[in-house]
Each structure stands twice: as C-alpha cells, then as structure tokens.
Amino acid sequence: MAGVGRMSLALAAAVAACAVPAAASGAVHLRGTAYEFNNTDVRLAGATIRVAENRSVVATTRPDGTYDLRVPGRGRVTPYIVAAGYHTIYLQTFRIRGRDLARVNFQTPTDAVYGALATLLQVPLDAAGEPQECAIVSTFSTRRVRTLSFDEFTAFGAHGVAGATASATPSLPSPVYFNDQVVPDPAQQRSSIDGGVIWTRVPAGIYRIRAKHPTRRFASFVATCEPGRIVNANPPWGLHELRAKRRG
C-alpha cells in the first residue's frame, strides 16, 4: 500500500503541473447582465454582446439578460451591446490580466429615452441620429454594491455617492451631473445620490476618467471614444468607491 500511496502522490503532482490558469489557456470570461436604463426590472434577452477590438468575439444574452463572453486572456477589450429597440452602448475599456471579470453589466437606454436625453443635453446628432462626437457616462457608486449579485444590486436602492466631482486626462470641459431625479442637470455642481455624471461632446481619443471626493476614494477607468460612440461605465465598475486607506 505504501507504493500505491507514492504513486497517488506522483499522479497528483503531475495533474497539478498540468493545471493552468485561465490566462495560460488563452481566454477568460466576462459575465454580467443587460438591463434597461432606469428600469432594472426589464432584462434584455437576445441582445448581442461583442468587443470593439475583435468583433468576431460574440455572445447572446439569455432570457434573464445574463451573458457569458469569452475573450482573450490578455490585452484590452471594450464590450458593447446591440439590442432591438435600444441604443448601442459601449462599456469602459478593460485591461484583461488573465482573470475572469464578473458583474460586467449593461445599463441600456431605449431609443426613445436616448433621444430624449440627447435633446435635453443638446447633443449634436448626425443624419443617423448618432452623436457627432462621443459621450462618456459613469456613476459614482458606493462600495457596498461592489460584490452584490444582480438581484441584490437592484434591491439595494440608490447606490450613488453624493458630493463627488470627475475629471478627464486628456482634459475635457466640466461634465454634467445627474440630480436626485436621475436627470442631467447643468446646475448640479457635484454628484447627487444618483451618482450619475456625463460628458456629451468628447473628441475621439482614449481618456482616463478620475473622481475626487472630500472623504472617499474612487477607482478610475479608461474610456475609448470614437464619433457616434456612447461609453457608459456603469456600476459596479466605472467610478466605484474604494476602501479607505489605512492610517498609520
């Protein structure tokens, strides 16, 4: 039996040596839920998810709005969604480092809501109804929703953080913040409890978006802009709250 034990240990060691992380296998998974902007009860079934850097990478959302997108294990990816009756939305550009990403959600406006917001914000549109430039949207979100399931996230209620401001590198004009009624309000000087923030006339380019708050820290994100593209870095990614720094 001692010989069998040594053989089992050798076999276990061989199996462990052959086991490889997701990065080494060449792919990781992005998983999340697609839902209607300002109406989390509506999940988008049958929507197409792709990445801008490689349009052959594709997934379809399930009846409950969830999806599983297999992407290269290293590099940068910018996911986007196409759904009938909804405006195409791009997410932030993620840097993939060999690990799966969870809760990569799509907050997707109907065509009607998109048109109303474009009118409210006086966004110049082309003949196809697309922005002539780019728009960047995000939410200052509390870290308390960072690890919640989608159902827990939707049950949480208002998940924004009030009192924050945002800036971009390269520099952009001051953004517009959403008020408590989830409406972009030029009179709003800082984020409300809704947490929303938007730039509406962004030239093509790659931007680092950062947040500032008197007492809280937030993650930054990268937005890759092209004419006609709307980038919505929505919770729990985008400008999400980080843990406070330890003192001492």
Results as ranks from 00 to 15, higher is better:
8 S>H: 15
180 D>A: 10
161 V>G: 05
151 D>G: 09
224 T>H: 01
66 T>S: 14
141 S>V: 02
165 T>N: 02
195 G>D: 03
154 T>Q: 09
51 V>L: 07
94 F>K: 04
142 T>P: 01
220 S>T: 08
190 R>D: 09
207 Y>R: 10
62 R>P: 06
8 S>E: 15
46 G>H: 05
175 P>Q: 09
120 L>C: 05
71 V>S: 03
128 A>L: 04
86 Y>R: 03
34 A>C: 04
103 R>F: 07
218 F>L: 03
235 P>Y: 01
14 A>L: 12
101 L>N: 03
6 R>E: 11
77 V>N: 01
123 V>D: 10
89 I>T: 03
191 S>P: 05
218 F>A: 02
44 L>M: 06
80 Y>M: 00
49 I>F: 08
85 G>H: 08
119 T>H: 00
82 V>F: 00
125 L>H: 03
128 A>S: 10
173 P>G: 06
41 D>G: 10
211 A>P: 04
178 F>D: 02
248 G>M: 04
106 F>Y: 02
204 A>M: 09
150 F>D: 14
6 R>P: 05
211 A>E: 06
110 T>N: 08
159 H>F: 12
166 A>N: 08
7 M>A: 15
241 E>R: 02
30 L>G: 00
93 T>C: 05
247 R>Q: 12
206 I>S: 14
247 R>Y: 11
201 R>K: 14
90 Y>R: 01
8 S>D: 14
44 L>K: 04
114 Y>W: 12
41 D>A: 13
24 A>L: 15
219 A>H: 12
108 T>L: 01
65 G>Q: 01
118 A>D: 00
217 R>F: 13
197 V>M: 11
71 V>P: 01
243 R>Y: 10
146 R>D: 07
175 P>A: 08
42 V>D: 00
8 S>K: 15
149 S>Q: 09
100 D>G: 00
204 A>R: 13
59 A>L: 06
135 A>I: 14
90 Y>T: 10
128 A>I: 03
121 L>V: 05
200 T>W: 03
159 H>A: 04
76 R>D: 07
188 Q>T: 01
118 A>W: 02
3 G>K: 12
90 Y>H: 06
145 V>M: 08
120 L>T: 07
13 A>Q: 13
142 T>M: 02
200 T>N: 09
235 P>T: 02
48 T>V: 13
190 R>G: 04
93 T>Q: 09
170 P>L: 00
93 T>D: 04
202 V>G: 13
105 N>F: 01
117 L>V: 14
17 A>T: 12
166 A>G: 09
99 R>A: 11
141 S>D: 05
96 I>K: 00
33 T>I: 08
247 R>T: 13
157 G>V: 07
21 P>K: 11
135 A>V: 14
158 A>Y: 08
184 P>A: 08
191 S>C: 10
242 L>T: 11
